[in-house]
């Protein structure tokens, strides 16, 4: 820290002068306060459901409908109950397997199609892209019946393949990857072509490493989307052995009552993989943003 300069008395700012200088700062402080308050409110809105999830998972059944955040008699028996129930591990594995395979498939197919639509010139290219984009306008609820009929015809009902096939490639992922490949200069592709790589090698060796941030973002979206998917897995599965975690958790309880404390316990445990996935891929996104800011 630098020492205060030894100023003559008349050169020192008086408290009055300091005060006069502050009016221009006051609105800024005001704005800052409002911004902080808004962020704080947003933070509360994000954290409260998670806090209630954990709180409910520590409550006795009779206390579940009590809105207090701190349980009167906290207990961990819900966790031991859920973890000792063999079905939980099976559902956990089903979800993990399906979300992982679907994520890998999306990273592969979406980026391959996105790259092709971005870097190759062929007749009908725009038409294909518009056709893919237009599927974004069809809601999932409209698609489940054709998907179900398809699964039935192919004999895919109540199977991993049946749960996974609609999401192995997505229009959103294709669009996202195409947009990111636009930022890869054509010179890179052409230099690799001159260096003797075939088109598949260029995609894999040159283009893919340059869109890692997009791949990381896509991986997070797809993994979370599949990890939390409920409607389609509920429709396409029949046996409890094929349930995914969200479907399995919803089955806790009986016809008379829903065991919210167990559902919240399962939900709390099931957030762990999503947190891991987010923490792993978030680094790539941040690194990507930092790299993109550098010249050249």
């Amino acid at each position: 820290m630098t020492a205060a300069p030894d100023l003559p008395d008349q050169a020192r700012p008086t408290s009055d002068a300091l005060f006069r200088a502050s009016p221009s700062r006051r609105p800024r402080n005001m704005g800052q306060t409002i911004r902080w308050l808004l962020l704080f409110a947003g933070g509360i809105a994000m954290v409260m459901p998670i806090a209630y999830m954990i709180s409910t998972s520590l409550k006795w059944p009779h206390e579940v409908y009590n809105v207090n955040l701190i349980p009167e008699e906290p207990m961990i028996e819900n966790y031991t109950y859920v973890l000792e129930d063999g079905r939980f591990y099976l559902w956990f594995w089903n979800s993990l397997f399906i979300a992982t395979i679907t994520t890998v498939a999306n990273l592969f197919f979406d980026s391959l199609v996105g790259y092709t639509l971005c870097k190759f010139r062929f007749p009908g290219r725009k038409l294909v892209f518009i056709a893919i984009l237009s599927t974004l306008m069809i809601p999932t609820e409209m698609l489940v019946i054709p998907w179900y009929l398809m699964s039935q015809s192919f004999g895919w009902l109540d199977s991993y393949w049946g749960i996974m096939f609609p999401g192995l490639m997505t229009a959103f992922g294709t669009f996202l990857m195409k947009q990111f490949f636009e930022s890869v200069p054509d010179d890179f592709i052409e230099a690799a072509r001159i260096d003797g790589l075939n088109e598949l090698q260029i995609w894999w060796t040159v283009a893919m490493p340059l869109v890692k941030p997009a791949l990381a973002a896509l991986a997070i979206f797809v993994f979370l989307g599949n990890w939390t998917a409920f409607l389609w897995p509920l429709i396409v599965t029949n046996s409890t052995d094929m349930y995914t975690l969200p479907v399995g958790l919803s089955s806790f309880g009986d016809e008379a009552d829903v065991a919210w404390e167990l559902i919240m316990t399962g939900a709390a445990i099931s957030t762990i993989p999503t947190l891991i996935v987010f923490l792993i891929f978030q680094r790539f996104i941040i690194r990507g943003v930092v790299m993109a800011g550098l010249k050249g």
Partner: peptide, 30 residues
């Protein structure tokens, strides 16, 4: 292009940002 026995240097260099200098140079020998 790879069969023409040519090499090209581009305006914006076209050196791959994810590879070291050694790998970039070695790329021409793949």
């Amino acid at each position: 292009p790879k069969e023409r026995d040519i090499a090209m240097v581009f305006q914006n260099y076209a050196i791959y940002p994810h590879m070291s200098v050694r790998k970039n140079i070695a790329f021409g020998l793949r």
